[in-house]
Design a protein around this nucleic acid. Sequence first.
DNA 1: AAATCCGACAACCGCATCGGA
DNA 2: TTCCGATGCGGTTGTCGGATT
Length: 365
Amino acid sequence: MQATIMSQRKGAAMAAVATSKHEEEMMELRRGPWTLEEDNLLMNYIACHGEGRWNLLARCSGLKRTGKSCRLRWLNYLKPDIKSGNLTPEEQLLILELHSKWGNRWSRIAQHLPGRTDNEIKNYWRTRVQKQARQLRVDANSAVFRDAVRCYWMPRLLEKMAAATATSAHQVDPALLHPAAHIAGGMASADASSPVHVGGHQDAATNAPGSGGYGHHGPQRYPVDPSPSTSTSGGSGSTSAAALPPVPCFSELSWVDQYSPYADLDGGAFDAAALGGLGLDGLDLGPADSDFYSDSTLLDYLNSTCCTGGGAMMTTMMSGVNAAHSSCGGAMGGQDGDYGSSWRADDICQAAARKLGDHQWGGGI
DNA sequence: AAATCCGACAACCGCATCGGA
DNA sequence: TTCCGATGCGGTTGTCGGATT
């Protein structure tokens, strides 16, 4: 019975495919990169009729594209609230954290990063994070790699955030960086029911289609001559802090307590210092590093009164990093980011096995 | 200067799920 | 209850530009 239904469905599906293929042939559907004219057509149609009903849109808008293609183009690029430019350290932290909880649930992760698309996050993961895993010769989803990320990558991101703050002339509340803030319970208590907001530092007008496209990476690539008029000025850095949406409170992140250097004080698990002595350094934060320091969004966040927990967290994690530096005789390199030696997966495995007492150690990676 | 390699990202594809008829 | 179109999601591929040889 079920097999019959299945075969019926399959038959219907195949018929539908055949029909759609026929239609495609009749319409000579376009594929590949979108042109400026196509983008304009799509935007104009949506401006008049709204989002949704993508197949109808594809038929009626004059675009020789599938509804799917139109939807993707709109959601991943043209939608006004799409945030362009490199991911901020806060966003990277959140991605790392949420991926450790949910795995490859890109759309779910993207829901917590306003303005970022699942596609963008997925690409980030594949190009940056998985690259690290490959270098370590471990599976990006393995416990070892997750721990390495938590003990090294995350602190390094926080370090960069701290560096961005320290080198800035902006006024940062000293209390944000005071170590006692964490110990004295200074972590901001977040409303658990509220979503975690990261990024969102976004002037929609500056990210309108044609206003600079990929941000740091230059203008949108069009297969035909892009009109000079498509690039407008004033694309970055002019947003006032007052206009910012809610910023992340790091105490919302589960690893804050579990993986803080103070975790061992109450029987915690995995501390940075233990691995630090093995020369497990050199995490490459990717080519976007230099942008971290010039990204005004960081300063906006750090200047925000909502970020008390983040400041304390940063200090906490920085203490861990420093402890690791001390315990390994400075093997982690200097503060200038010269993390020379490369990681050794075997070393990480051994250290993890020692520290975790094998209970998280699944054997073969 | 040309060829090749590689990273980053946009776009596509197949499948799953949802919701209305 | 079943069918089917619309939509969403995750994996994969294609393309481009910069770096390297």
